[in-house]
């Protein structure tokens, strides 16, 4: 290496040393991070878990006013065959009364079928109100027993600590009486 490129005369190697130290440290840090990633990522959902990502449901046995729970990705999905009154209630709410404003239209594909993930958006409990006789809360939807969240007949949060509406999964109607979730 030529000495003539040195800028500081009395400490000739300072810049080159600094560069080498920085470069070595950077390579070490990036390398450690790259070596660590496989371990971190191994804790993410594996391929077999991801493969169980969709489920088909036959709707023909669900009478008006009835609801069922199906398992999808290890958690329940609520499918409710809504009554005229429940649909009207869901549509008549003014958006400014909602904690997480969403129209009923944006949450359903067919008005009589409400399909939501049955996991309370507060801390993940299963709200009650699907089976006949369970409390449906103050808004004709679901009631979460853990910390007292009330959801309406569109699965929207109306009262209690939950911050969001019940999540709507991706789904497609294969026929009039069959739906594929996921």
């Amino acid at each position: 290496m030529s000495q003539t490129v040195q800028s500081s005369g009395d400490k000739p190697d300072e810049n080159r040393r600094d560069f080498l130290t920085l470069a070595t440290t950077a390579v070490g840090v990036v390398g450690t991070g790259m070596a660590l990633w496989p371990f971190v990522d191994s804790m993410n959902p594996s391929k077999d878990v991801l493969a169980l990502a969709s489920v088909e449901v036959n709707l023909s046995n669900i009478a008006v006013g009835q609801a069922i729970k199906v398992m999808w990705r290890g958690k329940p999905v609520f499918i409710r065959h809504r009554t005229e009154r429940e649909i009207k209630e869901a549509e008549d709410v003014a958006l400014n009364q909602l904690v997480d404003p969403e129209t009923d239209d944006a949450r359903v594909k067919k008005k009589e079928w409400l399909i939501v993930v049955g996991v309370c958006t507060h801390l993940g409990c299963i709200p009650m109100g699907t089976a006949t006789g369970e409390p449906r809360g103050d808004f004709d939807g679901w009631y979460c027993p853990c910390h007292g969240s009330h959801y309406d007949s569109s699965g929207r949060i109306r009262k209690g600590p939950a911050p969001k509406n019940l999540h709507v999964p991706t789904y497609t109607f294969l026929t009039d009486t069959s739906v594929k979730i996921g």
Partner: peptide, 28 residues
Amino acid sequence: TVITNLFSAFPVIGDPLVTWLWGGFSVG
């Protein structure tokens, strides 16, 4: 379920973090 869901409270990273803690889409 309740305790791991606490981490979903964090903005942006919350949900991926909880999925990572679970290794799935729910406690399993």
